[in-house]
Computed example of a mutant assay.
Amino acid sequence: MPQITVDYSAGLGDGFDRPGFAKALHEATVGIAAAKPPACKTRFRRTEDIVVGPETDGHAHVHVHIALLPGRTDETKARLTEAALELLRAHLEVAEGLVLHASAEVRDLDASYRKFESW
């Protein structure tokens, strides 16, 4: 916890500082949602295709999913979502002529969530 997944368009690969974004988002998550630094984990999933309305060209997307253990207020979740979007602006260069669709969400992990670390 937190479990962070970032889906992003393949066309953004070279202009997206993924390690820098992850580190900055981890810091924000610690500061805003009281997560522990070693617990922050981010994985990136590159998506090959995006279709927006009838268009298959000229668009790119990034969606940040942040899953936390229950107990954070809606205000805290909203602050973290806004921070994620601001950090995207700082770590992402979008090619001219490309329309970026960026979004983020914070949700509670289900009560069934469990984890273990290797021993």
Rank of each mutant, 00 (worst) to 15 (best):
R18C: 09
R89P: 02
D17N: 10
S103F: 10
A28G: 11
P70M: 07
V64W: 03
G20F: 06
A35T: 10
V62P: 00
G11E: 13
G15D: 03
H61V: 00
D108T: 12
G31I: 04
E117K: 11
T73E: 01
R46W: 09
P54M: 10
L100Q: 01
V64D: 01
H61W: 03
A102H: 04
D57Q: 09
K36S: 12
T29L: 11
S118N: 12
E75F: 01
H61A: 04
L87I: 05
E96W: 02
E86Q: 13
E117T: 15
L68K: 04
S9A: 15
E86V: 10
E86C: 05
P70D: 09
L12P: 00
A95H: 06
V30L: 04
E117L: 14
V99T: 15
P2A: 13
L88M: 07
E105S: 10
F116I: 11
P37D: 05
I32C: 02
A83W: 11
P54G: 06
G20M: 06
T47M: 11
A22S: 13
G71N: 01
H26L: 03
T29W: 03
T29N: 01
V6C: 07
V62C: 01
P70Y: 07
P54A: 13
T81I: 08
L88Q: 04
A10F: 04
G31Q: 12
E55M: 06
A95K: 13
A60R: 00
L98V: 15
A83N: 05
E82I: 07
R114W: 14
V64F: 00
E86L: 09
V64N: 00
P37M: 00
A95Q: 12
V106Q: 06
L92I: 11
E96S: 09
D7H: 15
G20E: 06
F21N: 00
E75T: 14
R89F: 08
T56I: 13
G71D: 04
H63F: 15
E48H: 08
G97Q: 13
V52P: 02
K41H: 10
I4T: 12
K77E: 02
W119D: 09
S103I: 13
L68V: 14
R46H: 09
I4P: 02
V52C: 06
L88K: 04
E75Y: 00
T73Q: 00
F44Q: 04
L85P: 03
A90R: 14
P54W: 09
K36N: 09
Q3D: 14
L92V: 09
L80H: 01
E86W: 06
A28F: 13
L85K: 10
G71H: 02
A90Q: 14
D74S: 08
G53F: 10
E55Y: 14
E27W: 09
T5W: 12
F116N: 10
V51F: 11
A84R: 01
M1E: 14
E27R: 15
P2W: 15
Y8S: 05
A10N: 09
A24N: 05
E82C: 00
A10Q: 15
A10V: 06
E96A: 09
D49R: 12
T76C: 06
L98E: 14
K77A: 08
E82F: 07
A24M: 08
D7G: 13
T42W: 07
E86P: 01
S118A: 12
T76E: 11
E105L: 07
R79Q: 12
G15K: 05
L88R: 05
V62N: 01
P38R: 03
H101P: 01
L87Q: 02
